[in-house]
Amino acid sequence: MRLVAAAVTFGAVLATLSGCGSDGPSGPVDAGGAQGRRAPGVTALPATDPTLIPDVGERLQRRIPADTGQVLVVYGEGENSPDSTAVFYMKEGPEWQRVARWAAHNGRKGWTVEHYSGDDRSPVGVFGLTDAGGVLDDPGSRLPYDQDYVAYAPTVNAVAYDHVFDYVIAIDYNRLPGTVPHNPTRPLGEDRGGGIWLHLDHGDGTSGCVSLPKGAMKFLLRTLDPAQHPVMVMGDERELRA
């Protein structure tokens, strides 16, 4: 029954994707996708095993929980690059299907396997996606959604940043899953940073978060299903394939 339900869910997502793209690329694979950029290996190399996420090595594949049915992979263009491509996969039976792809940005100084506060790099790894929120009203999120004008007010006084936190999804790095994205608890300690989110793109690198077009954020909020135990796999090409 679980496999049938997963297949039905996957089909429903494909059927509704085209209705989500009015304010950013959020359609099927390659529809308004990576804006001319190609994720390292994502489309250039065929997947050799459909039961595995493409271009993710055994080390990180093993960290994807067995009951996960949705994975967002952020393929960084290089260890020191702020540019990346996000690809959303859903499981249909035992096989992973690529559903959507978007241009993205990560930390302005690239990636790190040991993130510290203020290093301007995004942490490499596999992280849960459990909680969401933002300045704007809930767009129909399946994740718990915390709407708060004050907590998600932009932290940079520049026009390009006015709407970056309209929608956010917490990346479960150094935080307590099941709490609002702005919860300040840091299980690894304050020096290891925190507040690593998915949020709206402002055109360049971040302080460690991953940024996506508005349409992509709305699609993910409406699609990420707690019952599918969604996770995010993120890093530069070398670390992802290790």
Results as ranks from 00 to 15, higher is better:
Ala5Ile: 04
Ala160Ile: 08
Arg59Ser: 14
Gly134Cys: 08
Met90Gly: 01
Pro94Glu: 12
Ser141Ile: 01
Ala170Phe: 02
Tyr173Pro: 04
Val13Ile: 12
Arg63Gly: 00
Ile53Thr: 05
Tyr145Asp: 00
Ile64Thr: 07
Val159Leu: 12
Tyr75Ser: 10
Asp236Met: 04
Gly128Tyr: 05
Pro82Trp: 02
His163Cys: 05
Asp67Asn: 14
Gly27Asn: 09
Arg98Phe: 01
Asp137Cys: 06
Tyr116Asp: 11
His199Met: 04
Met234Asn: 01
Ser207Asp: 12
Gln228Trp: 10
Phe10Trp: 14
Asp137Thr: 09
Pro25Arg: 00
Glu79Arg: 15
Leu3Lys: 11
Arg62Gly: 09
Asn80Ala: 14
Gly189Asn: 02
Gly125Tyr: 13
Gly33Ser: 13
Thr48Trp: 03
Leu52Trp: 07
Pro181Thr: 03
Asp131Gln: 15
Tyr173Val: 03
Arg142Ala: 07
Ser22Gln: 13
Gly194Gln: 04
Val42His: 06
Leu136Thr: 09
Pro226His: 11
Pro213His: 05
Glu58Cys: 04
Val210Leu: 10
Asp55Cys: 12
Ile53Leu: 15
Ile171Pro: 00
Met217Gly: 03
His115Ala: 15
Pro154Arg: 05
Met1Gly: 12
Thr185Ala: 15
Phe10Thr: 10
Gly195Phe: 12
Glu95Cys: 12
Ser26Asn: 11
Asp225Tyr: 02
Phe127Met: 08
Gln147Trp: 00
Met232Thr: 02
Pro187Phe: 12
Gly195Trp: 05
Glu77Asn: 14
Cys209Gly: 08
Ala15Arg: 15
Asp131Val: 01
Thr206Val: 05
Gly107Phe: 06
Asp138Trp: 01
Gln228Lys: 13
